[in-house]
Simulated assay, not measured.
Amino acid sequence: MDLSAVGRAVLIAREGRRLEAYRDSVGVWTIGIGHTAAAGPPIPRAGLRIDAAEADAIFARDVAAFVRTVAEALPEPLPQHAFDALVSLCFNIGPAAFRRSSVLRRLRAGDRMGAGEAILMWNRPAAVIPRRQGEFDQFRTPYEAALPRARPSWRARLRDWLARAALTASLRPDQDRSHDVH
């Protein structure tokens, strides 16, 4: 499996894009789209700047390693949305922590619901709790179900109403019409 376009966009939104190195919520030097020294060069440090194209190239290289880690660790294929959520989690906690996580242990035991709930256990520092909730929601909700439902146009609603009215009018006069809505 690979990270979907939706999964990639969601992960980028979660990580943010910063072109100057900064210390994250736990003090780790970070640059670009969540890139740290643990992922390899460039090594983020005070004063380091990159451009947007470099940030995208570093992210593409970094995320490929996390996708590989998740794909190799899974006991069986998952729906795309669940796979994307696990890549996001792995990207944030690191491959070693992911491999020994209760999320993966529960998946290997066949407990997909428990695995989703175990995502929420990764709640330190407190600043990651909204991210974990998002990953949990992403893990359990197919992308199609999360899309907003379009409201029918007024023309479609009128056409439906006219069809119902024509059906009602075609009823025989001796039929009970007490259930009709007017």
Rank of each mutant, 00 (worst) to 15 (best):
P125C: 06
I50P: 12
R151I: 15
N92F: 04
A96Q: 09
D62R: 04
L158N: 00
V67S: 02
S101D: 04
L107A: 07
E117D: 10
L86H: 05
E117S: 03
M113C: 03
L167M: 10
R61Q: 13
Y143S: 09
A156Q: 15
Y143Q: 08
V26C: 07
V26S: 03
T141C: 13
A52I: 12
F66A: 01
L162N: 07
P130N: 03
D174C: 05
N92S: 11
S88V: 02
D180E: 13
A115V: 11
T69G: 01
D111N: 14
E54P: 00
L104N: 06
L162G: 01
Q80K: 05
P173K: 01
P42D: 05
L120F: 06
A163D: 13
D176T: 06
G16I: 14
R164M: 15
R157E: 11
R177G: 15
D160T: 14
R105T: 10
S170Y: 09
A5G: 12
S102N: 14
A150E: 14
P95S: 15
R140W: 13
R151F: 12
V103L: 11
G40Q: 06
P152E: 05
A169S: 11
S170L: 15
A53C: 03
R99I: 01
R108D: 03
H35E: 12
W161K: 10
L89Y: 00
R151Q: 13
V67K: 01
E144K: 07
E76T: 05
A127K: 14
H179D: 14
G7W: 08
L74V: 05
P79M: 00
T141Q: 06
E20W: 01
G110Y: 12
L167G: 14
S25G: 09
T168I: 12
A46H: 04
G16N: 08
I129M: 11
R68W: 02
M1F: 11
D56N: 08
I12N: 02
A115N: 03
D176P: 03
V181F: 06
A52M: 09
H35N: 10
V28G: 06
E144M: 04
N123G: 02
R164W: 13
R14D: 15
D111R: 06
D174T: 08
L11I: 15
C90M: 02
S153C: 09
V26G: 05
H35L: 12
A150F: 10
S102M: 12
A13C: 04
M113T: 13
T69Y: 00
A39T: 07
P130G: 04
A38Q: 08
W161M: 14
Q133F: 03
A46W: 01
H35T: 14
I93S: 00
F136A: 02
A55K: 02
R149Q: 12
A150G: 07
E15R: 03
S153K: 05
D56Y: 01
